[in-house]
Amino acid sequence: MLIPHPLLGLRDAQEFTYLGDASLLNRPDPAEGEAAFCDYVFLRDNPAGVHRELWYHEQGDRSWLVVTRDTVTHEILGAELARDVKGAGA
């Protein structure tokens, strides 16, 4: 799989490590309590189809990306810098 890095162009997915669902960017507020954190840490949507997920460019520029990928075909539909996604409040 080749990931279209927004700064570096097409990079081999092997240069990256995979974390999981991009919803991990949205850590709940500590005031929301244990149940909210339990959902955040353990529960996933796990869709068959388009999935937004976090990849870390460990063997490259050490940036976190939000990659949009189809889990049924492995087709990669896009990649953004995680800091841009987080900054936009997604």
Partner: peptide, 8 residues
């Protein structure tokens, strides 16, 4: 309507 502690 359930979310599971599982990834495929």
């Amino acid at each position: 309507g359930m979310r599971l502690p599982i990834e495929s």
